[in-house]
């Protein structure tokens, strides 16, 4: 296939192989998801991640309708959902039921909105479960750009984020505003969701956040090591998952999540063996 972007971007022969591109994309998402996934686990935000990810399908439908980039649309709606959930937090709603409402409502509205798009043929499966094998060079640039942004943002705010996660009052007493740190996490989460849609789709993004972090937990003694462990699990899952999906002819996104799940079981078995 001849692409105009191919001429603008320096041609690296290795990137001509769609399998290599898929792996590099998966690695990029795994690296961004590692630090954020740890915070999602520590702060018990799993359903928050789900709601944000599900909202992105509405973003996809909107961006196709208005002809803007899917990345921008998904990012915008995911961010809006994140801010909505944050602002509703502590206003007397039960958090889990409220997230249940928002998460599924966003998914349903997104699917309905997508059905109105008659001019655009939309491959819903690709957005629900990912389409990592179709990742192009521009996608790679977007994914790695987003990953770099998240890693820099979380790295910069690291200590403050940890303080805000531990205890809000301790953070305030130390001159840290936990509300601002929550905003950093919400923004990062929206970025990860937007770049991960192509890889695992909106339905499995939360898995990519939570499973590697939880797999690393039994083996580590510090928050920093947990992030590194989650990154290693994520990268292995991406590389092995892509290979496995080719060998067994299985859908790639779910295959990546399956590999991560196997590593989660291994991590916990080794962890309990170490302690026992």
């Amino acid at each position: 296939m001849i692409t105009t972007t191919g001429m603008m971007i320096v041609t690296i022969p290795m990137l001509d192989d769609f399998v290599i591109r898929a792996m590099i994309a998966g690695i990029g998402v795994a690296l961004a998801a590692a630090p954020l996934g740890c915070f999602v686990v520590w702060r018990r935000m799993a359903y928050f991640g789900d709601a944000t990810a599900h909202a992105a399908i509405l973003g996809v439908a909107l961006s196709l309708a208005f002809g803007v980039s899917v990345f921008i649309g998904a990012l915008g709606v995911a961010l809006a959902m994140g801010l909505l959930v944050t602002s509703l937090n502590g206003r007397g709603f039960g958090m889990d039921s409220m997230l249940g409402v928002l998460s599924h409502a966003a998914l349903a509205v997104g699917l309905v909105a997508a059905s109105f798009l008659q001019d655009v043929r939309i491959d819903l499966m690709a957005y629900l479960f990912g389409d990592i094998l179709s990742v192009g060079r521009v996608d790679l640039a977007v994914i790695w750009g987003g990953a770099a942004l998240v890693i820099i943002l979380v790295g910069w705010r690291w200590s403050a984020l940890l303080m805000a996660t531990l205890n809000e009052d301790l953070a305030y007493a130390g001159g840290i505003n936990p509300k601002r740190e929550q905003l950093v996490l919400t923004l990062s989460l929206a970025v990860v969701v937007a770049v991960a849609i192509k890889i695992v789709g909106v339905l499995l993004i939360a898995a990519l956040l939570i499973i590697p972090a939880t797999a690393a937990r039994p083996l580590v003694r510090s928050p920093e090591m947990m992030v590194i462990g989650a990154a290693i699990v994520g990268v292995i899952s991406a590389v092995v998952g892509v290979q496995a999906s080719l060998v067994f002819d299985t859908p790639t996104g779910p295959s990546i999540v399956c590999v991560a799940t196997v590593l989660f079981v291994l991590g916990n078995v080794v962890g309990s063996w170490k302690l026992g």
Partner: peptide, 20 residues
Amino acid sequence: KLHIDPTLPLTAARFLGLPK
């Protein structure tokens, strides 16, 4: 009271070293 989530690995020294 300070509830530390069991998923957050933190030694006493690392805790004391937060935020700096």
